[in-house]
Design a protein around this nucleic acid. Structure first.
Lengths: 105, 105
DNA sequence: CACGTATATACGCCAGATCGTATGTTCGCG
DNA sequence: CGCGAACATACGATCTGGCGTATATACGTG
């Protein structure tokens, strides 16, 4: 699951809402339709994108499909974020060192 | 800077490359043009989107504009990720408790 | 098997995003 | 002031993505 695919999937507002909705508990397609206020085929298409990105899992329950979030792709996003966090911290450290040099307290 | 705007900005592959390029050091537009292999106006447009999302900062240096990344919007993304991480951890804990109940070691 | 329910797929449409080209605008320099 | 360099903006063409409607598929129930 490349990072680009993950970002593309969650950048769509409705998909982000769906992903948040299945974060804590699994939901059927019909429940998600009610939640996001869109027509069923649209929700199914968004779910397909989320599934392709590995962001959700499906479980068959009779004629319903219960969706639930997966964390694996978000872990790569977390790694990417970590690199930026580090870069930012390093910049703060350099700034601090610079200030210490000019005004050693 | 709403989360949606941040995601929309970094979901575009070229913008993600640009943001990574200005993560550790500042870069002029011309440098970025060489890096991403696109025509200058395109890079400027992407930079405008990143700037609107607060993901980059500009510094004038003569006739050049030096861009550098900012972390603030990514912090909100980090918060969002944290919620999903928590939900996932909670699920693991419940699974563990369930296994312990069936097979107490 | 017939029928309703739940979900997925096919299709056409349209708004928005991206790109390249052309054109401003600002700055440094002679 | 005139000219080139660096960058931004305007514009038109093209393509993609999301939407709704219509239809197919799978399942449960009688």
């Amino acid at each position: 699951m490349p990072l680009a695919q993950t970002l593309d999937a969650i950048a769509e507002p409705t998909r982000l809402r769906i992903l948040d909705a299945v974060r804590d508990e699994e939901r059927s397609v019909t429940e998600l339709v009610d939640l996001v206020g869109m027509h069923q085929p649209g929700v199914s298409r968004h779910l397909k994108v989320l599934r392709s990105a590995g962001l959700v899992d499906v479980r068959r329950d009779g004629q319903r499909r219960c969706y639930r979030s997966r964390f694996a792709p978000l872990h790569e996003l977390d790694d990417w974020l970590e690199q930026h966090r580090r870069a930012w911290d390093a910049r703060l450290d350099r700034l601090e060192a610079h200030l210490d040099r000019k005004d050693p307290s």
